[in-house]
Design a protein around this nucleic acid. Structure first.
Lengths: 170, 170
DNA sequence: TGGATTGCGAAAACCGTTTTCAATATCCAC
DNA sequence: GTGGATATTGAAAACGGTTTTCGCAATCCA
């Protein structure tokens, strides 16, 4: 019932595991292993939260400044295809990418003040959706639930907001 | 508990009422009453469902072929600002506009086969969301719930799909 | 009815994303 | 290893939906 926040610490073993899984996917698809893809994937799995393309590119450029948008976009598509990553859109017009959490499925609460995105999961909510679909002769393949609002801890919220604004002027 | 479909018939009185409300809004804002805006608004409130800009423009052009995208976009923004219309995005990358239904708030089931968008509302669902937010010290301003899947009535679905494809080659 | 002001339409700009294309890197067969 | 077929890269152009610009037209208040 408690919210499932994204990982507090991104440990090496997690990133390594994901990198290996991606390498396996690349091989399975008969694609080539490249320096750029490795850099992008390694960078992605060492970031946390819901990463935008720009945020990722900024990080990636620290390792290899010659990598551009095109390759980042292409690699993200591969990550999504490999099912190691999910694409999300929260209505601000840009795609965000999320490495799978420990939980299979979850929904989101988005604070409009500090921009923080919280994850949560509740089985009753899922069951109720299924029930409603059933009643209307509808079969659910996937769903999306987003709660937009404000976190109630003003201190933490203000801190995050400040941090966000600082890193925006990058 | 039954789904709230959009109006089956768009009656004159409904459209007239909305047009009057828009006229009042325009006046209140000190804006000018124009032929084009009237045409667009009148057309919009005589269409049903979740209307895309292109669909609306197509209809509008039947009344006045000189009206272009810019004015339709601008008028839709005014409609949203007037709170007579809500903007929705269902992840196919284009905005859809919805005149308020009889129900204040509702969620959506979207059939990925025929494209039909059903509306529904369930108080238990709303209450559960509030409860979950509460538990996580979060205050909900608004939410979005979309169930993507398939309608279970294959005939109706096929009909709608065909109809949609026919009107696409417009 | 004049004239300040707002709105219009066409075209250009925008913005996030995708594609193109020539140059480069990968990797399998030898 | 090396060659060579093939995949990948990066820069720039294209894209698609939306917004803005700009010169002209319409509105509406005094």
């Amino acid at each position: 019932m408690a919210p499932v926040h994204h990982r507090k610490e991104v440990d090496e073993s997690y990133a390594k595991e994901k990198e290996a899984a991606f390498a396996e996917f690349i091989q399975r698809k008969g694609l080539k292993t490249t320096r750029q893809r490795n850099t992008i994937v390694a960078t992605f799995f060492r970031m946390r939260g819901h990463v935008s393309v720009e945020e990722l590119l900024n990080e990636v450029k620290k390792a290899n400044s010659r990598i551009g948008y095109a390759t980042v976009y292409r690699t993200l598509h591969l990550l999504v295809e490999s099912e190691l990553v999910e694409e999300r859109r929260f209505g601000d017009g840009l795609a965000r990418y999320e490495g799978h959490s420990d939980v299979e499925h979850h929904d989101h609460m988005i604070c409009l003040e500090c921009g923080e995105i919280f994850e949560f999961f509740n089985p009753r909510l899922e069951a109720l959706q299924e029930k409603l679909a059933e009643e209307n002769d509808f079969k659910i393949f996937r769903h999306r639930l987003e709660l937009y609002g404000a976190c109630k801890d003003p201190e933490a919220c203000a801190n995050r907001k400040q941090k966000r604004q600082a890193s925006a002027g990058n």
